[in-house]
Amino acid sequence: MPGQKKVRVYSLSTCPTCKRVKKFLSDNNIKFENIEVDLLDSGEQWVASKELRKYNPEATYPTVVVEEVICGYDEELLKKVIEIK
């Protein structure tokens, strides 16, 4: 659906602060992709860490990424999402 936000959480299975963030999202009925980086195998871990650094160069946890997907040329939605006055 255009304009729908996608939420992704980079987390560690051992980190209580990560658990708090995920509980907050669940309590507010927010669907999210949960990437527990410490539970990935080394190859996947390398890829996930590299991806995480695009958003958070320090690669700290938790990191919550909120993305909005806009398809086609929808000026109104572009203005709203990118906050163009």
Binding site: L12, C15, P16, S49
Partner: peptide, 25 residues
Amino acid sequence: FVLDILAGLLKNEERYGYRSCPCRL
């Protein structure tokens, strides 16, 4: 919260052999 952190420390000790910070990879 602290007991959760300590569970994370003990998990790391179990898998790595040392109590690595539970909030760092």
